[in-house]
Amino acid sequence: MGYRFKIIIVPFLKVSGIALFPFILVNSEKLLNDAVVINHERIHLKQQAELLVIPFYLLYLLNYMVNYAIYRNHNRAYLNIVFEREAYANEADMGYLNRRKWLGWLRYF
């Protein structure tokens, strides 16, 4: 991926994992070895890096809000965030980040 990241265990985290550049937070020690969860979050780190972090969070929130207005459902709104679509579609492909083109998330609009 080109840079190092640190994984931090946060037991009170309400989700399995979250990427907060340059960290990956997971809610349990067992997730340290969950390649799919870690790869999903690594994809988000790449998205954050290429958008210079703050614009990523703004676009993520905006996309969620638009999706929520469309679907009126949190889960559907979340799963249709363009960044999540890319991450979920490729989380099990451990070589994805090596082949991923710059701004690869644009394919998921």
Rank of each mutant, 00 (worst) to 15 (best):
L106F: 11
L51D: 07
K101D: 09
I81Y: 02
P11C: 02
L31C: 06
F12S: 15
E91C: 14
R100E: 09
N80K: 13
F109D: 11
N63G: 07
F109M: 14
E50Y: 11
Y96T: 09
A92L: 03
L58S: 14
M1F: 12
V15W: 12
I7H: 05
W102M: 09
F12E: 13
Y78D: 02
Q47I: 12
G2L: 05
N90V: 13
Y88A: 09
I38E: 06
Y64W: 15
A69W: 08
Y57A: 06
A92P: 00
V82H: 10
A87N: 02
L58E: 13
E41C: 04
L59V: 01
N67H: 03
L61G: 12
Y3T: 07
L79T: 13
M94K: 11
G95F: 03
F83G: 03
I38W: 04
A19E: 08
L32G: 05
L103R: 15
N98E: 15
A69Y: 13
K101C: 02
M1R: 12
R76I: 05
V10H: 00
G95I: 00
F23C: 11
I7V: 15
Y60D: 09
I81V: 14
K101V: 09
L32R: 01
L79V: 01
N80Q: 14
L58F: 09
E84K: 06
V15L: 07
